[in-house]
């Protein structure tokens, strides 16, 4: 990923977010009894300032002559992890089987990340670690702290 391009995309996204906030703050009340500034004042000021600084940053990035490559190490793994986390939380939220879901999630990640040894050994170590961690979670969060998952 190019540093310049990445920055510009990020700035564009932030500008978009602040534009949404700015747009929304116009539907807020401007004045209320006994209050010199209303709930819309701060959001308006900040989102406008944010848009301005984004433009400034955009210009300074353009002016910079040198560009560098941003290393996204093992980006494939990043995507796997994020997708796995999303699937995990969805299962947790909609199926409710927290301990089963988290066990599978943990096992999947451990197995995926590990590239040492045979397949069998990888499965065993991943299972072992998942087991210990989930038991720890059950004991500490579930039993000691009475968290209802």
């Amino acid at each position: 990923m190019s540093y310049k391009k990445g920055t510009n995309v990020m700035l564009l996204l932030i500008t978009l977010v602040s534009a949404i906030f700015l747009y929304q703050s116009f539907s807020l009340k401007t004045l209320t009894t006994n209050q010199p500034i209303g709930p819309d004042f701060f959001p308006k000021v900040i989102s406008i300032l944010l848009i301005i600084t984004c433009i400034i940053s955009f210009i300074t990035t353009l002016k910079k002559t040198e560009d560098r490559k941003v290393e996204l190490e093992k980006f494939k793994f990043v995507i796997y992890t994020v997708v796995a986390a999303i699937v995990f939380v969805m299962c947790w939220q909609f199926l409710g089987l927290f301990y089963v879901c988290s066990f599978i999630f943990l096992f999947a990640l451990l197995y995926l990340y590990n590239n040492n040894g045979s397949k069998f050994k990888k499965i065993l170590t991943s299972l072992g670690i998942s087991l210990v961690v989930i038991l720890f979670v059950y004991a500490v969060f579930g039993k000691l702290l009475n968290v209802l998952f």
Binding site: F105, L106, L110, Y113, N114, N115, I129, V137
Partner: peptide
């Protein structure tokens, strides 16, 4: 490779 998933889930 073992530590990262544990940190994430905890």
């Amino acid at each position: 490779y073992a530590l990262t998933p544990i940190i994430l889930i905890i």
